[in-house]
């Protein structure tokens, strides 16, 4: 076992898994050019939970899409495990802001959709069953997306990403369209998933509480053009309490830096 894990992390445990190297991104619209990101750098360790916070329009989604390989930086590069990201890869799975489920597939099939090619039917079935148990969807195997609530649908989307068996999960404001109580519950579940599976998680959010409740490191972005303003290590133990005075202190600090 130890031999196996040593092989996997031959670069050493302290080598960052994701390294964003001085990236800039300029979009050209028909009325001119917009710089979305400028000289942005940070890194993320293996099994780390990192949150990227910023106001809407600060380019945090663009940043995540570039890391996912769905978009390209105009300058700079993203390294994953030391290799340059040139497109989507088997070691990164994206969860979008909307669930983006396939309406013609059942919950089970939607999750199985994420399973990477080259698996036998039996393997796919087992993996899907395990993940449905993990995200609490066993009773909804045969349901279609239109029969699910928003929270359920987003759970399926997270399940699909887990079925992809990535090293890193990239989440783009996954809970932003949910009501408060569902959001709190799913945040708790995400924390549990992270502790159980040991995935590296990169969470984009505009919700400061969410970032403080979940992550070990918070990257604060400032808008126009988007760039890293501060990087904040949060070493509070889990589960965290929003009424903790240190929590308040950090929250105030982020609030002042976010604009």
């Amino acid at each position: 076992m130890s031999n196996f894990s040593n092989n996997l992390s031959y670069k050493g445990e302290n080598e960052p898994l994701i390294k964003v190297n001085n990236i800039s991104k300029t979009f050209s619209a028909n009325w001119g050019k917009v710089q979305a990101l400028r000289n942005l750098s940070f890194s993320c360790k293996r099994e780390e939970f990192v949150a990227i916070v910023g106001t809407s329009g600060c380019g945090k989604t663009t940043l995540l899409r570039i890391i996912a390989g769905l978009d390209y930086p105009t300058e700079g590069e993203v390294l994953f495990n030391g290799k340059r990201v040139l497109g989507p890869g088997p070691e990164r799975a994206m969860v979008f802001q909307e669930p983006r489920l396939f309406p013609w597939l059942t919950v089970e099939q939607n999750i199985a959709f994420g399973v990477q090619g080259g698996r036998s039917k039996q393997e796919i079935k087992e993996l899907t069953a395990r993940i449905m148990a993990l995200v609490g969807l066993e009773d909804f195997r045969q349901a279609y997306p239109h029969e699910l609530s928003g929270g359920m649908a987003q759970r399926v989307a997270i399940g699909r990403a887990l079925a992809f068996e990535p090293e890193a999960l990239l989440l783009d404001e996954p809970f932003s369209s949910l009501d408060v109580s569902t959001r709190l519950r799913l945040q708790g579940e995400l924390l549990g998933l992270w502790q159980k599976t040991g995935k590296t998680i990169l969470l984009v959010t505009h919700d400061i509480d969410e970032a403080l409740l979940l992550s070990q490191k918070i990257i604060i972005m400032s808008p126009a053009p988007g760039t890293v303003k501060k990087i904040l290590e949060i070493d509070l133990p889990y589960p965290r309490r929003p009424d903790d005075p240190i929590f308040w202190e950090k929250k105030e600090y982020i609030r002042q830096n976010i604009i």
């Binding site: 799975a93 994420g114 990477q116």
Partner: peptide, 11 residues
């Protein structure tokens, strides 16, 4: 196109 993008992200 959002579903196509999902397909792309999942290779």
């Amino acid at each position: 196109p959002k579903l196509v993008e999902v397909g792309r992200a999942y290779m």
